[in-house]
Write a protein that binds this DNA or RNA. Sequence first.
DNA 1: TAGTGGTCTAGACCACAAA
DNA 2: TTGTGGTCTAGACCACTAG
Lengths: 239, 239
Amino acid sequence: MNSTRRLPTPQYQQVKNHLRDGIVSGRWSPGDLMPSEAELVLQFGVSRMTVNRALRDLVEAGLVERVQGVGTFVAQLHRIASTLTVRDLHEEILERGHQHEARIELVQRIKATPEQAQQFGLASGAPLFHTLMVHLENGVAIQCEDRLVNPAVVPDYLKTDFTQITPTHYLLSAVPLSMASYTIESTLPTGQEAQLLGISKREPCLVVRRRTSSRGQTVTVVRLVHPGSRYVIEGTFQP
Amino acid sequence: MNSTRRLPTPQYQQVKNHLRDGIVSGRWSPGDLMPSEAELVLQFGVSRMTVNRALRDLVEAGLVERVQGVGTFVAQLHRIASTLTVRDLHEEILERGHQHEARIELVQRIKATPEQAQQFGLASGAPLFHTLMVHLENGVAIQCEDRLVNPAVVPDYLKTDFTQITPTHYLLSAVPLSMASYTIESTLPTGQEAQLLGISKREPCLVVRRRTSSRGQTVTVVRLVHPGSRYVIEGTFQP
DNA sequence: TAGTGGTCTAGACCACAAA
DNA sequence: TTGTGGTCTAGACCACTAG
């Protein structure tokens, strides 16, 4: 059936490209009915499974929506207009070809305040691990990392040499896989944070809070403070 | 082959669940070799296409990596530890069940400064559309939207009633589909922005810049300023 | 009833990597 | 050479929606 042309581009990719081009070029507008699988089978001379894969990929990409018994439609595109990824700082710095260094300020065992205990679903006064460090990129402080860790989940956390392995990396290797929720906001640093970062107490900071859990238990809660003048989150979206 | 059990759960989903559970529970760690397609075919008594679909879904989700001729491995999970989505403000507000209102400050035609012209790939002095408005959630100013639009791509932009339709919505309907790049940072507002938002000039703001292009042309450049005390980006990640 | 998408099969050929 | 994943087929049965 397809003895010719067997080199670079899979057939499902060709179908995908054709449909995506039609959407990007505006030939089909959001809400429009698109060709059925059967039509595409005839048009491209491929099997239905191949057409189906192309369409499922487009669904995954958010470009089309499909309704059983009805048809395939161009998606309303508001939803996908913006997705960005926050990377791990260590990777980010190395990828820029820069030097990463961590300055450790605190590595200690504490007793949970009522607020902290609540975040972890533990009793007030329960033991927690606490680390506080500053991450430097080529010698410039760009992040203050204030982290609490659940000893019940990661008992060996404090044994790590955090000048060599970032807490993020250690936790990702020590805990199978996790769910996380975050917030990103703009606030002023605390006095201590300003001092550690070497910035004014009036400098706006980008603050990321992240709470990570695994198998129903909270693993870690972290506050990442970045001087606004030294750190920008970047992202791209493309169909 | 599969005459029994034909009701709710697709077979590829069962294979997927089995593998995902193994990763989440830590039975397989990042970097570990996972069962081959052939093994899974035997284990689940399904066809290879079915197993293949399950595995491709897991690749898409970022949980595994596959190497032709070698095998399937649990992914290094650093990459996926954080993906968040920035939604359209109008949708966001309505979804919270709140009132959205736009206060229009400027709707005008301007001549591009050299900097602006460069962003659009146009000649200095070329015409641009400029809108400036404040978005209110239940009467509280939460975003100042300062936008430039390319008249060559969206000639009817200024005819829109922006109290009824947000620029974002209009542009998404008027321009087929677009690529975008953004930055998110924490800075102080300009004097004008502070005044429009009714905040102090010293209040940190979350600033999103977005540049959108379609078919190789820059469509719009926007600066969205949010008072830090009133706006937080939230996100979740789960495997 | 006719047309749609959702799923599945039992093969097949290929490119690739490791032994 | 063996085993891996990447792709593809020509059918099939099903659930769903619309006329």
